[in-house]
Amino acid sequence: MENTMDIIENPFSKSNNNKGKEIKEKAVIGITQIAVLLIIAILFVILGIIIYQGRDKFSWEFISSFPTDGMTKGGIFPALIGTFILVIVMSIAAVPFGTITAIYLTEYAHEKSKFAAAVRFSIRTLAVVPSIIFGLFGLGFFIQFMGKGMDSTFNGGELHWGQPNILWASLTMALLTLPVIIVSVEEALKTIPRELREASLALGATKWQTIKQVVFPGSISGIMTGTILAVSRGAGEVAPILFTGAAYYLATLPGSLSDQFMNLGYHVYIMSTQSSDVEKTMPIQFATTLVLLILTLSLNLVAVVIRSRIRRKAK
């Protein structure tokens, strides 16, 4: 017995047959590591450049004052305010609409309903439409059709609504963000366990009472997450408002929904392509980008925090 034990080789030892496999394994690990590092590096380079180039200009004064001297000096106050108004009007339009759609899809639609399937397909398609298409749609539908129509019906053809303004830009942006809202609200509604719905129904509650009293209160933070994600997307997009309301420069803040507005993303675009003096506007450009980044990143951060809280609660 002892002899045979000596002769048999250790079945687990590294043998030459496996050399090839080992090298492959190491190569795969190496490639994935390089890919990950590359992504992190890209992020840091982008952030680094923006912070480095924008840091001198970035100040409270920059945020709170109007541009001066043909936009080669001064701040970005009207662009910041314009962005705020845009996302607020957009949310007022998109959040209720999206929430109601999500309630229909999760609570009322039959599992095999063809109509619901069509709605879901539309939402998915809407989510992948390039944003410039939304811009063109907004120009064609809201401004040319709705706005012009309103003007000829109510204003005797005098141009008032039939031109780019905050309202049309916000509604265009609302369409773009609608899929984000619908999907996040749907997810939030689905986290409410069936047991709770049954408890409510078994007490003689109607479906709507159950949604109002049990499902909705339980998913309020999910709805907020969806809203915030939509807002942060809306704050960063430029293409949809290009033709529908964003202005190059305005000396005053917008006073009504039929006024044009300045916008952070659009301001960056203007600064980098239309500037009369690139040397002077370069720092403004970077500082504006920095403001926009801080705005969207912090919004996303809030959304992530709320979402992780929901996940913990769901468990």
Binding site: A199, S200, L201, G204, A205, Q213, V214
Partner: peptide
């Protein structure tokens, strides 16, 4: 369902106070 109540296998109180749980049924009525 108002006339025929049901108690489930897994206890399923609403994420509300004790009072609100009991008051839920009368309130929706």
């Amino acid at each position: 369902r108002k006339k025929i109540g049901m108690v489930f296998q897994k206890s399923n109180p609403f994420p509300k106070s004790i009072y609100e749980n009991v008051a839920y049924g009368p309130r929706i009525n």
